[in-house]
């Protein structure tokens, strides 16, 4: 029995189906990349895993347990999601936002306890956010805000961390910083990571295995070397590429080529 099993998943919005019959298995502690063209269903897949969207059919099992028999709070204790940026309308501080990650442990009538506050301090330290803890989140830079979101997800004490394009809109320095941070959670805390990435070269370097999605179907699932092949990528992304395996220690490096 695999750690996370997705069986014949069909999902979408209302009557519209985005994911058609998706099945895959992930082992504990893997760093999984999810790649594919715009509209392939990457975000829909993450949203279905975290109860934001109910699947139209199919099952998701975490350690043999069907997550759709679990309450929202139980799901939140296993899966945390870092969405595509946060636009809060009120000026909460970074610490207040991270503390909201404790929600599944508190219940609708409860209040945070001392342990929750201590855990949040530990998370702020691990994500190097203590300097910004009392600053309103709208005063932070995009990279710092992304770290706050990751810290909030970490405060949820999940087993699986899902990230939806965590490096979008960040400069290359922050892209590496964020993904190094996420990788350290895998190595130090044993978290399982599933991360939607648009940058194929980052996917190549960080992911143990990659899911290639196209039009709601898994085209292929495997280690970077077997997914980031020119025939496969050219067909799915409808563009010419060159692959070089000599620079990134055997990992494929992908260079898109102009059609003209």
């Amino acid at each position: 029995m695999a750690y996370l099993e997705v069986q014949n998943l069909r999902s979408g919005y209302g009557q519209i189906r985005i994911l058609h019959d998706i099945s895959f298995e992930i082992e504990r502690g893997e760093f999984i990349g999810i790649i594919g063209p715009n509209g392939a269903g990457k975000t829909t897949l993450l949203k279905t895993l975290t109860h934001i969207i109910r699947p139209q059919s199919g099952n998701i099992f975490l350690e043999g347990k069907d997550i759709h028999s679990m309450s929202s709070a139980e799901v939140a204790k296993s899966f945390a999601m870092v969405g595509q940026g946060l636009k809060p309308i009120f000026s909460f501080t970074a610490r207040e936002i991270v503390l909201m990650g404790r929600t599944p442990y508190i219940g609708i009538l409860g209040q945070e306890k001392k342990e929750d506050l201590l855990l949040v301090e530990e998370v702020l330290k691990a994500t190097d956010l203590r300097r910004f803890a009392d600053r309103p989140i709208d005063e932070l830079s995009a990279g710092e805000r992304q770290r706050v979101l990751i810290a909030k997800a970490l405060a949820q004490k999940p087993e699986v961390l899902l990230l939806d394009e965590p490096t979008a809109h960040l400069d290359i320095g922050y892209q590496i910083e964020i993904l190094d941070l996420v990788k350290s959670f895998k190595e130090e805390r044993g978290l399982t990571i599933a991360c939607v990435l648009h940058d194929l070269n980052l996917a190549s370097q960080y992911c143990d295995r990659i899911i290639l999605l196209h039009e709601g179907i898994i085209v292929d699932f495997g280690p970077p070397e077997s997914i980031l092949r020119s025939d496969l990528i050219e067909k799915v992304f409808k563009t010419s590429i060159k692959v070089d395996s000599s620079i990134l220690q055997g990992k494929p490096l992908i260079i898109p080529i102009t059609k003209r």
């Binding site: 939140a76 945390a80 969405g83 946060l86 936002i97 909201m100 990650g101 929600t103 609708i108």
Partner: peptide, 19 residues
């Protein structure tokens, strides 16, 4: 307390385990 996380947006609230 629940309004705090609701004000971040509904998807944030759902993934944080709020009904």
């Amino acid at each position: 307390r629940n309004l705090n996380i609701m004000s971040l947006g509904e998807e944030e609230a759902i993934t944080a385990g709020l009904n």
